[in-house]
Design a protein around this nucleic acid. Structure first.
Lengths: 376, 376
DNA sequence: TATCTTTGTGTGTGCGTCCACAAAATGAGA
DNA sequence: TCTCATTTTGTGGACGCACACACAAAGATA
């Protein structure tokens, strides 16, 4: 018996003309319905909408983009990129989206602020508003400031999307981020699973994280401790603060820490600064499993070198790409996207890192071009 | 000091007209160069090519697609989909690509064969050739048959791409697959790292795998054993064959296996059939870590239920999507893609599986529509 | 001068956007 | 019921960009 599955299918695009024909109206009327241009009688409206429900019409966005007579200005506002590969990767995602939609008549403006300086954030946000963009991608840090910014954007009907995290109490078109508590929980699970049953755990916290909002770090810690409390291992977790800058301080602090807690076999850093701990531990000759976040150059190097065991990636460039794409699609074709978008939490080890590198580090044609200008 | 990074950039698309102007020729000549239509003087050719090198012209494929006057017929030829979620996910990727490029005047034909029946493969392949497709996506199983098929395709100048694995000795436009030895190596690493130092390891092999080519399984085993040999643990790995169908047989065989090897704490199944082992072990009350491949419904359920510890995913739907996209881009816009394309090996646990499900299981608008017809 | 090669120009096609104008339908008032 | 005004609808075209072909103009060669 020879069973063959075969299908031949002629794929044909539904055009405006087709919809007009099906609804028994003219293409002009369909156009009026689709774009809310001019008046349409209730009867015609209903007929067109019924057809639209049935046929799932999606206009080719790339064709719409060249046809549209609109100049689009997108503003990006995030913490400073310099020195933060996480934000650099997010911006790479922006760039990739802009390159992909290069047929759009587009202007982009990049605004970055000092994430430790609320007033800088405030002035930067006001500059964003002053430039009157058609859409904004926001990498938020200060909650109240962001609420104020988005209220102004809501008033002017300007769509905005978040990357990295969501700000509750606002109405973005969409947000793209990792679920931070899940991230902490996952890291806890990983170090627990790779540590002997009698081992204890360390949670190293950077005194001043360079890459992410304080809220994210808090959420991660909640998830992290949640895991250990669920497993009744809360008292096996020991904490230590470290400096992202002062290696000498870390060496001493870590040596004292491991003298006090010799059973600690697994360590977590709930930020991207795991390589700092890894280097310090290498110097003082202590060998424990370390897990942290993000595929930064330092972390990748530390992992290739065997000093980091697991990395958890949150696809920053995909976040950036999708945020821009979503806003552009909305501006060009209309329609409402899914608002909540959680990125996969990629588990990276030395054995699979090669396949992820290109997805994280080099995902855009060019880099982010930044024209640094110092004001006043 | 208030340092503000700001960039304003007007993005503008390079058009054929622009290239013509820059090269000091007419648009017609540029068109002739781009599409190899008609004759062009060496001087003009050089001028145009120099500009092309400089400006990185990429024609908007979606616009090319509506302009091109070509009917494209793509053939998909893979093992039977029924009962194999891996191939179903690959076909979901096909469908997604077809939907995304629905402005192309496209016909698709799906051919599937029994991967245990060389003669069925042969007759299916000959049907593929008989239908004279413009491009073929191949999910290969039988090496020699595939070489024969691709020789015929090479002769007629028909581009083809592989999913799931590459067949050496052929010249595909591209292939999209996971690196199977790395996959085996990664699985070895995972079960090693999550097993106590004095533990031993099991490698369970399905007698007749339902989902993948024998070659893939062999490659995985090579990578898997490579890890243990490198760590001088080769003698700690114990093997057992199991039946993908007969649960009763497995129960007995596994009980005997663990009686003989009580120190086995970590187990690998180098196919997607891990859930079968997991269920059997649950029935006979043995608790070991199990790692296997692929996010099939069974495996996802087993993982949610806590019976599977790690899954390694190979992004079948992305493979399918990219294979189709690559062929379409080549047919429409020309140009040569990257040939070697290795998918990331996603490490999945109960803690991050939620974020991957949609990427694997439901990644296309509709399902794969198959019109089953039994011949002769 | 005749012939051939190369190049420029023009036109049509595909589809969605968007404007202008004409045609039709509707309503109100006389 | 007729007229006028208003609303709604149909039609046609231009534009954006790439593709594809036809034909004429220019140059080169014999």
């Amino acid at each position: 018996m020879c069973k063959i599955h075969t299908m031949t299918k002629n794929h044909q695009k539904i055009r405006i003309k087709d919809i007009a024909e099906m609804a028994g109206v003219s293409a002009g009327t369909v156009d009026r319905v689709l774009h809310g241009r001019g008046k349409v009688s209730p009867a015609a409206l209903k007929a067109v909408e019924q057809v639209l429900d049935k046929v799932n019409y999606n206009p080719n966005i790339y064709l719409s983009a060249i046809s549209i007579r609109k100049h689009i200005k997108i503003a990006f506002v995030t913490p400073h990129i310099k020195g933060s590969q996480f934000w650099e990767q997010i911006h790479n995602g922006f760039t990739k989206a802009i390159n992909e939609y290069n047929m759009v008549d587009l202007t982009t403006e990049v605004f970055t602020y000092d994430q430790y300086d609320l007033y800088d954030c405030r002035t930067t946000y006001s500059k964003v508003l002053a430039s009157k963009p058609d859409a904004v991608v926001i990498g938020p840090t200060f909650k109240d400031e962001t609420i104020r910014l988005t209220q102004a954007l809501d008033e002017s009907g300007t769509p905005y999307a978040y990357v990295d995290s969501m700000v509750e109490g606002t109405n973005p078109m969409a947000f793209y981020s990792a679920k931070q508590d899940s991230c902490g929980y996952l890291i806890a699970k990983l170090i627990h699973q790779t540590t002997p049953a009698d081992g204890e755990y360390a949670l190293f916290q950077a005194m001043r994280v360079g890459d992410e909002s304080a809220n994210n770090t808090i959420q991660r810690k909640i998830g992290f401790m949640d895991f250990f409390h669920k497993h009744r291992l809360g008292d096996k977790v020991h904490r230590l603060n470290f400096s992202p800058l002062d290696g000498g301080y870390n060496d001493k602090a870590l040596a004292a820490f491991f003298a006090a807690h010799p059973n600690v076999k697994g360590a977590a850093v709930l930020s991207s600064r795991g390589s700092i701990i890894a280097e310090s531990l290498k110097r003082i000759g202590i060998n424990v499993n370390i897990t942290c976040l993000d595929l930064t150059a330092d972390n990748i190097a530390a992992m290739m070198d065997g000093r980091l065991d697991f990395l958890v990636g949150q696809r920053p460039n995909l976040q950036g790409f999708l945020a821009v794409e979503t806003l552009l699609k909305n501006l060009i074709c209309g329609g409402r996207p899914e608002v909540e978008n959680y990125m996969p939490l990629d588990i990276i080890t030395r054995e699979n890192i090669d396949f992820y590198k290109e997805y994280y580090v080099q995902n855009s044609t060019g880099g982010v071009e930044i024209n640094t200008q110092v004001e006043k």
